[in-house]
């Protein structure tokens, strides 16, 4: 192969950006969001701001991992904190008791969460609706019981503290968390955009019909549990290493519920919806921390308003304001266009 000169490569990149990114407002926003995240430390290194964005990134991974399981396959998991706590506690134990550094303990925490996904997934295969919701809710409570029953190992109420951070520099940590979030989000989105993603979608729509198409739905449902556990486990481990503590709060019911609320707020079965939701809601909640007595109430009101007026989530609502779909080829166009940019059909 001949080498392509840098000038030609740059030209190609510019063309790509012009034809693929600049044509749609939503893509421009995503590109600007990524650039802003990556460029932030160049503008400000305010420790409080950096901390908020690091935690937001952790919870964005968590919310997207819930969507991968529940939004896509429709197996509503109301105990997602189980995977988060499992990742947090496993990496904390490995880091403190076995002196395994974070780059080893976080993936092992994720593997523990995958195993947990299998253990939880199997009894959940036959369950639906309320029964599934209650069963999934029970698992983190069981794990919390184990945590309190073994205080020598888990630190009981106090948790395991003194964990090593991934990086000791503020900016180093920031980039590790933000880049991990961006990469894992892209991976999750790619999974859902693949053939496997179509099967996940179809299982949510009608499981029996998927079986009648010759697909082993048991395998795919368990796969969804394990994949979701993996990503949630990573976010749990990274959370523990950032906070330098893994405590029972990671397993709380409120944690599980927050995840569900974020995902519904952003829009189910999208991956990017829950991520956007966390980036809106988490900093917002940090902001209203100045009025602690109203915090929960403001949160509840905002969520209620969203559910009433944007039932498909904030992302689809915003996208439909800016773009419209071509009735013929289903390609999205800027709302101001009169005809489709690909097939030139008239947009109404």
């Amino acid at each position: 192969m001949t080498m392509i000169s840098p000038a030609v490569q740059l030209k190609r990149l510019v063309t790509l950006v012009r034809t693929e990114v600049l044509v749609l407002p939503s893509r421009v926003i995503v590109a600007m969001f990524v650039l802003a995240l990556l460029g932030l430390p160049l503008v400000s290194q305010n420790p409080y701001l950096i901390r908020v964005i690091i935690l937001t990134s952790v919870f964005a991974i968590l919310a997207a991992s819930w969507d991968l399981l529940s939004g896509f396959t429709g197996q509503m998991n109301f105990g997602h904190a189980l995977f988060f706590g499992m990742g947090a506690y496993t990496s904390a134990l490995l880091n403190i008791h076995f002196a395994i550094p974070p780059w080893g303990s976080v993936p092992m925490g994720a593997l523990a969460a995958v195993l947990t996904g299998l253990i939880v997934g199997i009894p959940c295969l036959r369950l639906r609706g309320t029964y599934l919701a209650l069963t999934t809710m029970a698992f983190p409570i069981i794990l919390m019981g184990i945590v309190f029953a073994l205080p020598d190992l888990t630190g009981g109420e106090l948790g395991i503290s003194g964990l090593q951070r991934l990086s000791n520099s503020l900016v180093g940590n920031y980039y590790i968390y933000v880049v991990t979030m961006l990469v894992l989000s892209a991976v999750m989105w790619k999974i859902t955009d693949s053939h496997t993603g179509i099967i996940f979608h179809a299982i949510r729509e009608d499981e029996l019909a998927v079986r009648a198409s010759g697909i082993n739905t048991t395998r795919y449902k368990l796969m969804a549990f394990c994949l979701s556990g993996f990503f949630a486990g990573i976010s749990g481990g990274m959370y523990a290493h950032y906070m330098r503590i893994a405590g029972p709060s990671t397993l709380e019911v409120s944690m599980s519920f927050s995840v569900v609320i974020w995902a519904v707020f952003g829009g189910l079965a999208t991956i990017y919806g829950p991520i956007a939701a966390v980036f809106v809601l988490f900093p917002f909640l940090e902001f209203v921390r100045f009025w602690p007595e109203y915090r929960t109430m403001i949160f509840a009101v905002v969520v209620l308003l969203i559910l009433l007026y944007m039932p498909e989530g904030i992302v689809h609502w915003a996208r439909d304001k800016m773009e419209k779909e071509c009735p013929r080829c289903k390609i999205r166009n800027v709302a101001t266009r009169k005809s489709c940019r690909v097939c030139t059909a008239l947009l109404d």
Partner: peptide, 19 residues
């Protein structure tokens, strides 16, 4: 029993993805 919220082509792709 179609997969209502999926495009028609995706409905059939599920069958094409069977072993």
């Amino acid at each position: 029993r179609p997969f209502r919220r999926l495009p028609i082509i995706a409905n059939v792709m599920v069958s094409c993805l069977s072993p």
